[in-house]
């Protein structure tokens, strides 16, 4: 009877892992990856391995999405800073208006 739970969680893991591969955009992939982590944690709990489930949750819930989205943000921003060629003189004084403006643009994720 407990096999029902194992089958359900295994199917969920298989479905979310397949979706994580099928989705191509890295940010959306990170979202599917979050769900894969959750289903894996449920599977580990069902298989009586709560230590592994805790490891999976600790890493997969907030840390992996944060690392992934930060990396995506850095990669996406690179062409912009090259193209507009703005703020070349702001190296010394970061307080200047240009630096703050470009930093604000950065914080908004442009």
């Amino acid at each position: 009877m407990d096999d029902v739970l194992i089958v359900i969680t295994l199917l969920l893991v298989a479905a979310s892992a397949t979706a994580a591969v099928a989705v191509r955009d890295p940010v959306r992939q990170a979202l599917v990856l979050s769900l894969l982590g959750l289903t894996l944690a449920a599977l580990f709990t069902v298989l009586q391995a709560p230590d592994v489930a805790l490891s999976q949750l600790a890493v997969g819930t907030a840390l992996t999405p944060l690392l992934l989205t930060l990396a995506v943000r850095k990669v996406h921003r690179r062409p912009h800073t090259r193209d507009d060629g703005r703020g070349g003189e702001t190296t010394g004084s970061t307080e200047s208006a240009g630096a703050i403006e470009s930093a604000a643009a950065k914080e908004r994720g442009e």
């Binding site: 840390l63 944060l66 690392l67 930060l70 990396a71 943000r73 850095k74 690179r78 800073t81 090259r82 060629g85 703005r86 703020g87 070349g88 190296t91 010394g92 970061t94 470009s102 950065k106 914080e107």
Partner: peptide, 27 residues
């Protein structure tokens, strides 16, 4: 380790930017 790891990622994503031209004295 996680704090240091994320600090490096955050530096790259928030604080460090590629210069249009290399500055003579890096900050």
């Amino acid at each position: 380790a996680v704090v240091v790891l994320l600090a490096r990622f955050l530096d790259q994503a928030v604080e460090i930017e590629e210069s249009p031209k290399p500055p003579s004295t890096p900050t």
